[in-house]
Amino acid sequence: MVEVGTTRVKRGMAEMQKGGVIMDVTNAEQAKIAEAAGAVAVMALERVPADIRAAGGVARMADPRVIEEVMNAVSIPVMAKCRIGHYVEAKILEALGVDYIDESEVLTPADDRFHINKHEFTVPFVCGARDLGEALRRIGEGASMIRTKGEAGTGNIVEAVRHMRTMQAQIRKVQNMSPDELMAEAKALGAPYELLKYVHEHGRLPVVNFAAGGVATPADAALMMYLGADGVFVGSGIFKSENPEKYARAIVEATAHYDDYERLAHLMKGLGGAMKGIDIASLGEDQRLQERGW
């Protein structure tokens, strides 16, 4: 018997992305630059997060024509974003044949209370999380991959660092708990008990955990790997820099060799300017994308 869309096949796809960089692209040309630089996948968008942030208004899934253009341009996996809770956008992306769906806070949420039931899809999902409870709720809904939310489109790594550190500290705490403390902890975190038990027994999430939201330089990518990320998403950081090809190659190498500091020093030489960043403190509550998701 041949089985498609099993948990193993969906989570396994994310396992194959480990140690790699997933890059946001908005057309075929950018997708080819990303692939040639060694990206493990691309995220097909109409606008990178920095431009979504600048444009304001309601941000929705990309035009299917953009997604197909990217899918036709490269042989590596193609991901695309749907709005939180937008079941139909996700079904459309699945019908298009995208390889992974990001139910993303970067787009304007379609549902202010519920996320998509991701179990009933054949295509796997990645979701953002700021802490262990949020990560385990998303996995409980069927997410096959987790990423930090960070603060997308800012070029500022501080929120991704906070989210990764928070999650790793919570994982260590749960791992060291006595089994009789787990149910109360599940209640406190708002996490499904069975998944929390998995974390207690294995000392890690049951799925891959990437960094995202604010990665702008090779050193940022390496920092997230040092903090325990399985891999890195780069949104605006590449195509908002002065030299996207150089940035793309350098970030791929920095992610693979994140603990080889001489190599990192070499990689960082003469890269040209990184994307212009935003101080998180200057963002109002309503401009903080990470608050989206429940």
């Binding site: 018997m1 041949v2 089985e3 498609v4 869309g5 099993t6 193993r8 096949v9 396994g12 796809m13 042989s75 996996p77 699945e94 044949g97 995208v98 390889d99 992974y100 054949t122 295509v123 796997p124």
Partner: peptide, 13 residues
């Protein structure tokens, strides 16, 4: 490469 299709066609047997 990618001889069995995209991710939605990925399978186990």
């Amino acid at each position: 490469r990618n001889a069995f299709g995209r991710q939605r066609e990925s399978f186990e047997t």
